[in-house]
Simulated scan of single mutants.
Amino acid sequence: MLTLYGFGRVHPPVIGETRDLRVQWALEETGLPYRVHPLDHTGGEMDGPAYGRISPFRLVPAIDDDGFVVAESGAILLYLAEKAGRLIPADTEGRTRVVQWCFAALSTVERPLMEIQLIDKFGDAEADADRRAKMVQEAGRWLSGLERRLEGRDWIACADFTVADILLATVLREIRGTDLLDRYPRVKAYYDRALARPAWERTLAAYAERLGVAVEDIR
């Protein structure tokens, strides 16, 4: 059975923000059987040599599929889609579109959104005001691009929901505590549509139980 290495204990400010959510969502969407191996981040479990042999950077998530180990959330999602034959088209052009938007979510859209989230959670509002304003401006450029892309479309890469949508929706989730999406109605509707999926609700419930928090506290 496939094993997902995810958080069992993590520092409270980042509960609900961790990237194992992406992988568990993909597993719930594909229906692949899996178990979660919870790691105690606060106790240093990820820093030991055992986990270092699983994840080169000692980061979560990682998966072990009967001895085949994959790290990095984007790579894991693409592997799961290929393995299940779901959440990715069978033709080369369709698959390339999905890969393109996976890369776009992680390498383009996420950078300023993650920094905004970190400033809001851990920064100094006054000292970081200029930096945050620059990140909001940069984020606007990428969100505007998404807004154009989503004209007449339900999903970002293809007509159907794919792993690119899981990655992009979880990236957009990083700024859910702000009003940034209100300026982009198509992106906001897309985000709401993705997180209304039953597999996401199952994922969030299982994650909340694993971390010992209420679902509403991390929604």
Rank of each mutant, 00 (worst) to 15 (best):
Met1Ala: 14
Met1Ile: 13
Met1Trp: 14
Thr3Arg: 14
Leu4Ile: 05
Leu4Tyr: 07
Tyr5Asn: 09
Gly6Ser: 13
Arg9Lys: 15
Arg9Thr: 12
Val10Ala: 09
Val10Asn: 06
His11Val: 14
His11Met: 12
His11Trp: 13
His11Ile: 12
Pro13Tyr: 09
Val14Ala: 07
Val14Gly: 02
Ile15Phe: 08
Glu17Asn: 14
Glu17Lys: 13
Glu17Thr: 13
Arg19Phe: 11
Asp20Arg: 12
Asp20Gly: 12
Leu21Pro: 10
Val23Gln: 12
Ala26Gln: 04
Leu27Ala: 01
Glu28Asp: 12
Tyr34Trp: 10
Val36Ile: 14
Val36Lys: 10
His37Glu: 15
Leu39Ala: 13
Gly48Met: 13
Tyr51Ile: 12
Arg53Tyr: 08
Pro56Asn: 06
Pro56Tyr: 08
Arg58Gly: 09
Leu59Tyr: 11
Pro61Arg: 06
Ile63Leu: 01
Asp64Arg: 06
Asp65Lys: 03
Asp65Gln: 01
Val69Met: 05
Val70Lys: 03
Ala71Gly: 07
Glu72Cys: 09
Tyr79Arg: 05
Glu82Cys: 03
Glu82Arg: 07
Ala84Cys: 02
Gly85Ala: 00
Arg86Val: 02
Leu87Cys: 01
Gly94Asp: 03
Gly94Ala: 03
Thr96Asn: 08
Thr96Arg: 08
Gln100Met: 10
Phe103Leu: 15
Leu106Met: 15
Leu106Glu: 14
Ser107Phe: 08
Val109Asn: 00
Glu110Lys: 05
Gln117Asp: 04
Gln117Pro: 00
Asp120Thr: 01
Asp124Asn: 11
Ala125Ile: 02
Asp128Pro: 04
Asp130Arg: 03
Ala133Glu: 11
Gly140Cys: 01
Arg141Gln: 08
Leu146Val: 03
Glu151Gln: 06
Asp154Glu: 15
Asp154Gln: 15
Trp155Val: 10
Cys158Ile: 13
Phe161Glu: 10
Ala164Asn: 05
Asp165Ser: 09
Asp165Ala: 11
Ile166Ala: 06
Leu168Lys: 05
Ala169Arg: 05
Val171Met: 12
Val171Arg: 09
Leu181Ile: 08
Asp182Trp: 00
Arg183Gly: 00
Tyr184Gln: 04
Pro185Met: 03
Val187Leu: 04
Tyr190Leu: 04
Tyr191Thr: 10
Leu195His: 13
Ala196Val: 00
Arg197Lys: 10
Pro198Met: 00
Ala199Phe: 01
Trp200Met: 02
Trp200Asn: 07
Arg202Thr: 00
Arg202Gln: 00
Arg202Val: 00
Thr203Asn: 05
Leu204Cys: 12
Ala205Cys: 02
Ala206Gly: 14
Arg210Gly: 13
Leu211Asp: 08
Val213Ile: 07
Ala214Tyr: 06
Ile218Cys: 03
Arg219Glu: 04
